[in-house]
Simulated assay, not measured.
Amino acid sequence: MSEAAAIAIDGLDHVVLTVGSVERTVDFYTRILGMRVERQPGRPTALHFGSQKFNIHQAGREFEPKALRPTPGGGDFCLLTGMPSAAVAERLAAFGVAVELGPVTREGACGPMMSVYFRDPDDNLVEVATPGERP
């Protein structure tokens, strides 16, 4: 019996975030991170950025199928920007968002980057990174 070949993954389309308040989440991600909101009847609210999106599920009213234990605040992800990391930190401060860590050097999927870490309204850990930036 031969071993099956792995499935080749080319990219990421979307991630689902379970949240305490869809409206609070939409406000945060559109106002602070410039994402574009899309609402369609019978579908999750979506936050678009680049060629990806977050689908937003209200805790207790998730769309099926869903994670086994959908929980607000269980996310930890990295978003990419072309903006210098110091400017990211400054803009977050201007919006009253506390920087938890950074700018700091990290190794991303495509090489070195400078990252700034902060929390969204559900306490998900958000990393915004500038690829190729050096300290």
Rank of each mutant, 00 (worst) to 15 (best):
G108N: 05
V37K: 00
G34Q: 03
G96H: 02
A67L: 12
Q52A: 11
P72L: 01
Q58T: 04
L92S: 05
G108A: 11
R39L: 08
P72Y: 01
L80C: 09
L80Y: 11
A86P: 03
L68R: 14
A67I: 11
Q40T: 09
A87G: 13
G34A: 03
H48D: 10
Q58A: 03
N55I: 04
L79E: 08
C78Y: 04
V104W: 01
V104D: 05
T71P: 12
F77D: 10
P72S: 07
A86N: 15
E90R: 15
L80E: 12
P84W: 04
G82A: 14
G60M: 07
C78I: 13
A46F: 09
F95L: 04
E107T: 13
G82D: 15
T105L: 13
C78W: 07
S51A: 15
P41Q: 09
P65G: 00
A109T: 14
V97F: 00
F49K: 08
A98P: 12
V88I: 10
S51K: 15
A93H: 02
P72T: 01
V88K: 01
L92C: 04
G73P: 08
E38D: 10
D76T: 02
P70S: 03
E62H: 09
M83W: 14
P103V: 02
A98S: 08
F77T: 13
G50R: 09
